[in-house]
């Protein structure tokens, strides 16, 4: 009962390890799976540095045992880059807007925002601030993080509107869209 097998999918890869039952999910990800992008800031669920996605939802990996994640799909900061290795829109926006300084809290913010923007594609500043309020940053004073999220929304909207005309030229497809 002290050890248990944990099988889960992380960043699209199936993994299986036998670990101590008391091992925190954060340590499982960092020490067992060697994905050290997820950082440990407080281990009592306040700072949000260890935020990951569990079946697409943001959670604090320091407040979960690895065994609790058995069977789940996990995404960490290492999953964000585009397939060709370039920064994704959110990461690029953080770079463009200087949304990070020391970078320690950054992976947590990126994961929180990744999940948030899936649920809210066009947030107000207040909604953005609320969404990131579970992540502490001691360097930036948050302003540029808010700006980075706004920039991401803007970029996503632009790229969407760029593809829209393609949709409109296809009359049938347009109808289908309306029906659904």
């Amino acid at each position: 009962m002290n050890k248990r097998i944990v099988a889960l999918t992380i960043n699209g890869v199936d993994v299986q390890r036998k670990v101590a039952s008391r091992m925190l999910l954060t340590d499982f990800i960092r020490d067992e799976l060697k994905l050290t992008g997820t950082n440990v800031g407080c281990e009592h669920g306040v700072c949000g540095a260890c935020t990951i996605l569990l079946n697409g939802e943001s959670v604090r990996s320091c407040l979960m045992l690895a065994v609790q994640a058995d069977g789940y799909e996990i995404e960490t900061v290492e999953s964000l880059q585009n397939d060709n290795g370039t920064l994704n829109t959110l990461q690029q926006s953080f770079k463009d807007c200087h949304g990070l300084q020391c970078g320690f809290c950054t992976p947590g913010f990126l994961m929180t925002v990744t999940s948030f923007l899936k649920e809210n594609e066009d947030p107000t500043e207040e909604e953005i601030r609320e969404a990131i309020s579970g992540n502490l940053c001691r360097c930036t004073g948050y302003a540029n993080i808010v700006k980075s999220v706004q920039r991401t929304v803007q970029s996503q909207r632009t790229s969407k509107s760029l593809t829209e005309p393609v949709c409109h030229t296809d009359h049938k497809q347009n109808e289908t869209v309306q029906i659904s």
């Binding site: 992008g37 900061v77 964000l80 770079k95 990070l100 970078g103």
Partner: peptide, 17 residues
């Protein structure tokens, strides 16, 4: 734009831990 950001944004920068 900062040179440091690429590694920090991709989780590849290495802190002591």
């Amino acid at each position: 734009k900062r040179k440091e950001d690429l590694r920090l944004l991709t989780g590849t920068g290495k802190f002591v831990a």
